[in-house]
Design a protein around this nucleic acid. Structure first.
Lengths: 203, 203
DNA sequence: CTCCGATGTTGTCGGCGCTCACATTGCGCG
DNA sequence: CGCGCAATGTGAGCGCCGACAACATCGGAG
């Protein structure tokens, strides 16, 4: 046990870490600045020295999530194999990440942080990086495709994969709809639909 | 001005209606039972005579949303034309509904009501009805398809369309990703991806 | 007409985000 | 080396919220 010092030392990172744990455990709504402060043995007002308000802390947590997701993409795209296979691996990595951290995923993709203008500055870099990686994966899978074709495909691909994760997470697929389908059986159709066919006239 | 009577008359429906308005205006998080009570000229504790807690009221609002969505589907599927065209009209109707009521849509598809076991009983009927209608639309579009094929297609279709709406709502499509694509140009690719190709070997 | 269940009220509790005035610390500059 | 100031942490307090309990009022069934 260390002697209790007036200053915490690295309260900012500690807050992000504790908030991340809380988000993973019970979703973003369950994060309470008072709770976190007490967990870290600090007064209730201390967090406000490092984050303007609760949303700013959550934005930092979401930014950390996008950084982690980028690493997932990088690993997947660095794998061996043909372009479409690597893209597929990236999407599988995304789904694994989202299922391992449902609360964090919801914070990243369902909260309305980015809807505000301007979006929190901490978020822009990491979020854009993740999107750029996904974009490059798509380009690698369809090297002969035009830019506008890739743009449209990027939107449909992200829609399918994010929507699948959302509906699955939230329990919206009622048992009678998928009862005879093991979840593994569902994965391939979803990935096929997300990646889609190559552009007109290609191997 | 009407004489203030001790009993409100139909507080339950009035609460649902007022909550629906609030959800449309500022999302489910902005709903406060105290606020609603004051709006309706009623004391803070009165709502608890009609709803066990705040979530129960929100569940009733979501149920109303699924009923309205079912009407949208019914109208679209009753339209003239070939099966795929009617299904397409249903999806367009869904997107129009979701864009007209973003807060309500989020409450219906992003909240975790259905994740609890058991889900709120009010929700089950209306939600299942909406899903059944969508299912029938899919069957009408692919009359020769097997049940298991339809199941997989239902999941991918819903994923794509819900994910698109989610990402669009939340502003996740950063401008530089879709800048040259007008939104109308995005609709067709998304609908095509959602509906997908017919099963192997069909007209 | 009477009584009882449905409905609404007032008072209260604990939790929350956030702010302000004040206390403590340690780093950089003379 | 030491001093002073900015960074950091504290404690008290405001207003809002959900929820509960005890009490008040109403209106229809008998």
């Amino acid at each position: 046990m260390q002697k209790p010092s007036y200053h915490h030392g690295d309260l900012k990172s500690a807050l992000i870490a504790a908030a991340l744990t809380a988000v993973d455990a019970g979703g973003a709504e369950s994060v309470s600045l008072r709770d976190l402060a007490e967990q870290l043995g600090v007064s209730r007002a201390a967090p406000y020295r490092h984050f303007e308000d609760r949303d700013a802390l959550l934005a930092a947590v979401a930014a950390k999530g996008f950084e982690d997701l980028s690493v997932v993409y990088e690993n997947a795209f660095a794998s061996e194999g043909e372009g479409r296979e690597r893209l597929r691996a990236g999407l599988i990595g995304y789904l694994a990440f989202a299922r391992a951290h449902p609360g964090l995923h919801a914070l990243m993709f369902e909260s309305d942080f980015l809807q505000r203008s301007p979006p929190p500055s901490i978020l822009i870099g990491p979020a854009d990086r993740a999107y750029r990686l996904l974009w490059e994966g798509l380009e690698g899978a369809f090297p002969r495709a035009s830019v506008s074709w890739i743009r449209a495909r990027a939107v449909t691909m992200m829609s399918t994969i994010v929507g699948y994760q959302l509906l699955d997470n939230v329990g919206r697929f009622r048992p009678h709809m998928i009862a005879p389908l093991v979840r593994a059986d569902l994965l391939d159709p979803v990935l096929d639909a997300a990646i889609g066919p190559p552009p007109e006239g290609s191997p």
